[in-house]
Design a protein around this nucleic acid. Structure first.
Lengths: 149, 149
DNA sequence: TATTGTTATACTCTATAACTATA
DNA sequence: TATAGTTATAGAGTATAACAATA
């Protein structure tokens, strides 16, 4: 029931899937699990957060986030602090080492992508460049609508 | 040392990552792990394969693939057969139920994507549509170059 | 001997349930 | 009572090492 014959969602989905697996296989510094890398990245980009908020943002259970943060803390990548206004709360923040590692991982993956992009015909590279804001918009829509995704 | 200020690879990488996580958390039929879903999809699209070849294709160890196939077999999604020419070999193939489930998952994910895309401004939707062949080209490059990814 | 696959074992990561402490 | 977080326990999924069977 759609009117977009030019946009084959199955092809898009498959391409996204395979591209992500491709990037995931490329060796990145730090040896973090996907959830750990994502959590660290969230902390680096959006600042300190409560443990419960992190669990919700990363779509894992609260106990899972407790353990994940414990692992990241043991690795020196995050620090746990208290909330002066509420004794129950744990505030998690990235350490300098955590920030550096997250940025290094992001850069390393960017290089893998850049290498592949550099071997693509110019018009295709341009097409991808033009689609980046739209892809970001798609993510924003998905994040804003928990009922759908 | 690059000349593509218009293509921010870090942004692209991050968007791909978040988009894939978004799609992955959308509930799909069958309750398969990512590796199981990918293996089944490979069998459905490229036909029966040896266990060792599957392990290599999915980038998991041979024992991991033995267990993965055992789980898929227990679920009735794949069947194990013998190679008449070589008694050591196990040939894995998707059953009808496995093929149906894989196609249903693909369709369901397509619907999630289509819903999100439908809420995007038309020009952004067009930009993504225009980039699909280029994204596929990127995947092809990555698959063809095992040394890089 | 080399190759195909399985079994044994251990580790990471996750979830649910039960618990503690603070509000 | 409700909320923030931890601890206990169990299960899925993976890897490496050791093994069995076939070539």
């Amino acid at each position: 029931m759609e009117s977009q014959p030019s946009l084959d969602v199955a092809r898009l989905g498959s391409a996204l899937d395979r591209l992500t697996r491709l990037l995931r296989r490329s060796s990145l510094p730090g040896d973090l699990s996907p959830a750990a890398a994502s959590t660290l990245y969230t902390l680096v980009t959006t600042g300190p957060a409560r443990l419960t908020a992190l669990a919700a943002a990363e779509h894992v259970s609260q106990p899972a986030m407790t353990q994940l943060v414990a692992r990241l803390e043991a690795a020196g990548l995050v620090a746990r602090g208290a909330d002066p206004d509420d004794g129950r709360v744990v505030i998690v923040s990235a350490t300098d080492a955590g920030r550096d590692l997250s940025l290094a991982r992001r850069a390393a993956r960017g290089e893998v992508l850049a290498t592949l992009l550099g071997r693509l015909p110019r018009d295709q590279r341009d097409a991808i460049a033009a689609a980046v804001p739209a892809l970001e918009g798609l993510v924003a829509l998905g994040d804003a609508d928990p009922g759908r995704a």
